[in-house]
Design a protein around this nucleic acid. Structure first.
Ligand SMILES: NC(=O)c1ccc[n+]([C@@H]2O[C@H](COP(=O)([O-])OP(=O)(O)OC[C@H]3O[C@@H](n4cnc5c(N)ncnc54)[C@H](O)[C@@H]3O)[C@@H](O)[C@H]2O)c1
Ligand SMILES: NC(=O)c1ccc[n+]([C@@H]2O[C@H](COP(=O)([O-])OP(=O)(O)OC[C@H]3O[C@@H](n4cnc5c(N)ncnc54)[C@H](O)[C@@H]3O)[C@@H](O)[C@H]2O)c1
Lengths: 256, 256
DNA sequence: CGCGATTTGTGCACCCCTTCACAAGCGCCT
DNA sequence: AGGCGCTTGTGAAGGGGTGCACAAATCGCG
């Protein structure tokens, strides 16, 4: 945990936009709102209510309002939120106004899929360079980018001003790659390798682990099976769950 | 969340193993412990202390002990945990004692990578079937499996007793695919498409969204840049911050 | 056989997050 | 202009998770 809290930096009442220090949970949901807003904008909506947006993003409307209030959002009571304005606000807060350059290390099975993914560019990210250690990979061209040897990372990193590193190597190489990324000044890493990375303070690491997701699902599957197996005392225990709707499921959150 | 909650089903003090109803945060960490334990087992360790395991899993040792205590784990004071025993315990709780069959829908860019991933089998999951809607994909053989048309899902699902569905189609098709999966009895879905899925209560959905991860990293990158820009009042305000772990499923930098 | 070193299990306090419920604000219609 | 319905923004309550700190338990050794 590097930070996300500023016990010592209260207001800094400068003339600057005054970084609002958002709750981490809120930050994790903003991209979700952003996507929903883009969908709304494309379908011609100019304003949207918290209820409508919350629905589109799969969250509680009160939660959404509180999230937006954290970033000092400007909604209009009785009307809702201006879609275009809100998009700008969120993109500004997330730092998406500038296009960020991503370096992808490990162009194997998964790396190929990532390199060929067009979802990067459409969200303001640019894959600036591909790296691999295997001679058989180096030189290969994917989507207009040539795979370079990982030793070239220092040079390319400064040239392209990389701000995010993505690791898609086997777990055994991930820590070494992370060290190399950190060494060239990368302070944000997305790790697909199933392992824990040690990085200096100030460097953020997020991981995506397929096996973990499946195992979590497995647990719930297991539990659901156990529950239906023993129908409890009263009989139909599957009725009368409060909450009414609650169709969608998130995590994240969560936990996931 | 759909369920994970039992306001009406208290103890059920039966003689059965008595499903412990674990905290969700604990469930999300168990797979991490499991991987660390497997690594330890392979390197010859027979026992491990909470400190050692916590270190290997990248968490606080107190948190690890509490997690394990939740599943009524048997450690030995003064010694630690028996690695093999703990592996069995966790796998049992996660429902990994039986091999779960996975159906993968959408064999495109990402789907290919997933289909060719050997990390499934090694974690107790078996890709039982591949589906796609495009005629150009159907019939293709990947890793010994033939891609079938998605219309065959009902038949194959019953034959293979699918317990988890993975969606790797474009977002526009994801809801329809989810509906089809639910229709054939799948109650756990892993969704790679960047969209919100509506599913009936009792069905678990977990999502993996690359764009969201990158945008969260972007936010922190943005904030770090803003902080270094204005060195605040006193001077070095960037020293030692105590840890308050974030709530979502994220995990961040640990010093050394 | 007892003692100290070691490590687990957990009570507790704190903090973050979620959710409800409602007052305040805004636009529209009469 | 004024009232009315709709929606935002937020205070407060409740729940869950985290990590400290310590008592209880176990082993090895003298
Ligand atoms: N394929 C998937 O669907 C999938 C899913 C989830 C997680 N993962 C994880 O993602 C990672 C990559 O998976 P994959 O299937 O692409 O594996 P892969 O073996 O196909 O590709 C790994 C690539 O990394 C390169 N590499 C190895 N060491 C390197 C180094 N030190 N520097 C730079 N490049 C290096 C290899 O040359 C290879 O091209 C693995 O850790 C895997 O567990 C993969
Ligand atoms: N490629 C990546 O690295 C990546 C990363 C993150 C997320 N994603 C997401 O994963 C999804 C798949 O990405 P992709 O790059 O593989 O796309 P893709 O277009 O290469 O593959 C999509 C596949 O789904 C199939 N399909 C379409 N409609 C279908 C239906 N109704 N039923 C069954 N199959 C259907 C298509 O025929 C195609 O083969 C997308 O939603 C994408 O946003 C991809």
């Amino acid at each position: 945990m590097s930070q996300h809290r500023h016990p010592g930096t209260p207001g800094r009442a400068g003339a600057v936009p005054a970084l609002p220090d958002l709750p981490e949970a809120t930050v994790a949901r903003l991209p979700e709102y952003l996507r929903a807003l883009h969908n709304l904008a494309e379908t011609g909506h100019e304003t949207v209510s918290s209820e409508g947006l919350a629905n589109a993003a799969g969250v509680n409307s009160a939660k959404l309002r509180k999230d937006l209030s954290h970033l000092g959002s400007y909604g209009t009571r009785g009307v809702g939120y201006d879609v275009a304005l809100l998009i700008d606000q969120i993109e500004s807060v997330l730092g998406l106004t500038q296009c960020r350059s991503v370096a992808l290390v490990g162009v194997g099975n998964l790396g190929h899929a990532l390199a060929g993914y067009d979802g990067f560019a459409s969200r303001g990210f640019r894959i600036a360079a591909l790296f691999d250690a295997s001679p058989s990979r180096v030189g290969e061209e994917i989507n207009g980018l040539v795979v370079r040897h990982v030793d070239e990372l220092p040079r390319v990193a400064t040239e392209e001003s990389i701000s995010i590193g993505v690791i898609a190597t086997p777990a055994s190489a991930a820590q070494a790659v992370a060290d190399q990324l950190v060494a060239v000044g990368v302070t944000s890493i997305l790790n697909f390798a199933p392992c824990v990375l040690s990085v200096p303070e100030g460097v953020d690491v997020r991981k995506v682990d397929l096996a973990i997701e499946l195992q979590i699902l497995s647990f719930h599957e297991h539990r659901k099976a156990s529950l239906t197996a023993l129908p409890a005392t009263g009989g139909s225990a599957l009725t009368a769950l409060p909450g009414g709707l609650a169709a969608t499921d998130n995590q994240e959150a969560i936990g996931t």
